[in-house]
């Protein structure tokens, strides 16, 4: 079950990035090759981008992709490291909570006014719903990280830095 959900999450993430790229590419080809403009493409790309970021933020927590500065925390004894990490996650949950609450009010307002997107015939609140969905997913991932900490599976938040990200790409490159 979880295996299946994980695969779905990855697939959606890849699909969002690929469809954005293709949409912009097709727009260029249409304009340069066929002298035609795709009126709705700009708005669609922008919203796909928003979905990519807000949907992907939680996956970033799961895979430790978000940059953090752990220089200070690493100097602490291990017990304190865990306590600081728990405090940090609690604060991260406050962050999620505030946005879920604010996002909910915002979405309700959008739904109440009944606005549509500018170029696409989609209600704006639906296109914006990822705001609340994304922060709920983010909160779930933070709770999972907290459970791991309490169980003692890890000592720190496993947030990597961009360096590690680039490194893993580089290793792929230099393998052959």
């Amino acid at each position: 079950m979880f295996q299946w959900l994980n695969k779905l999450e990855v697939a959606i993430l890849c699909l969002l990035l690929v469809s954005m790229t293709l949409l912009v590419f097709i727009e260029v080809v249409m304009r340069f090759g066929f002298n035609q403009g795709l009126i709705w493409a700009e708005e669609a790309t922008l919203y796909l981008g928003a979905w990519l970021v807000l949907f992907g933020a939680s996956y970033g927590v799961k895979t430790g992709a978000h940059i953090g500065v752990d220089a200070f925390v690493k100097t602490l004894p291990s017990l304190y490291q865990r306590l600081v990490a728990l405090l940090t996650i609690a604060l991260c949950l406050v962050y999620c909570g505030l946005f879920i609450y604010g996002g909910w009010i915002y979405l309700s307002k959008l739904k109440m006014i009944g606005l549509e997107m500018e170029d696409l015939p989609i209600p704006k609140w639906q296109a914006t719903s990822i705001l609340v969905i994304g922060f709920i997913l983010l909160a779930i991932r933070f709770i999972q990280a907290a459970i791991q900490l309490i169980k003692g599976e890890t000592n720190t938040l496993q947030f990597a830095n961009e360096a590690k990200e680039s490194m893993s790409l580089a290793k792929e490159g230099s393998k052959d």
Binding site: G37, I39, A41, E42
Partner: peptide, 9 residues
């Protein structure tokens, strides 16, 4: 007027 409208930011 047979022109092609394009939308860009």
């Amino acid at each position: 007027v047979s022109a092609n409208p394009v939308k860009k930011p």
